[in-house]
């Protein structure tokens, strides 16, 4: 156990550092029910195979349950986007076209207006 102090809190770094490329898979009950676990494993595998500098992590529910599984992708040179209804085939296209080819994938982006 480490006893953090108030000042220590400010020094804690997030898992994904600024500028790091990432794929986040929504893995709450609804996502998993819709197949997020397989999608997560597929991304992990393909990114390793292609030897890409992209971190794959899980995250909570994005709220668009009708479009699960949801995946957020952020790579250099492109805005970060959320893909919905991601299955094995779409995941594959995201790696090939979006991550490697720097071209967004048609028909799967869900871009909803949210103020945070």
């Amino acid at each position: 156990m480490v006893q953090l102090t108030r000042d220590d809190l400010k020094k804690v770094q997030p898992k994904i550092k600024a500028g790091q490329q990432y794929v986040k898979v929504g893995m709450s009950t609804c996502g998993i029910a819709a197949g997020a676990q397989e999608v997560f494993e597929l991304f992990t595998k393909e990114i390793k195979q292609h030897d890409l500098n992209v971190v794959v992590t899980k995250t909570g529910c994005l709220g668009m349950c009708h479009a699960e599984p949801l995946v957020e992708v952020s790579v250099e040179g492109l805005p970060s986007v959320i893909y919905g209804r991601v299955n094995g085939e779409v995941a594959h296209r995201i790696i090939e076209e979006h991550v490697c080819g720097k071209r967004l994938v048609n028909d799967h982006i869900f871009d909803l207006p949210i103020r945070r």
């Binding site: 804690v12 770094q13 997030p14 898992k15 994904i16 986040k24 929504g26 992590t57 899980k58 995250t59 909570g60 529910c61 994005l62 709220g63 949801l70 957020e72």
Partner: peptide, 11 residues
Amino acid sequence: CGIVDPESIDD
């Protein structure tokens, strides 16, 4: 929700 990794306190 949908931003942090819920299993990471650092996040």
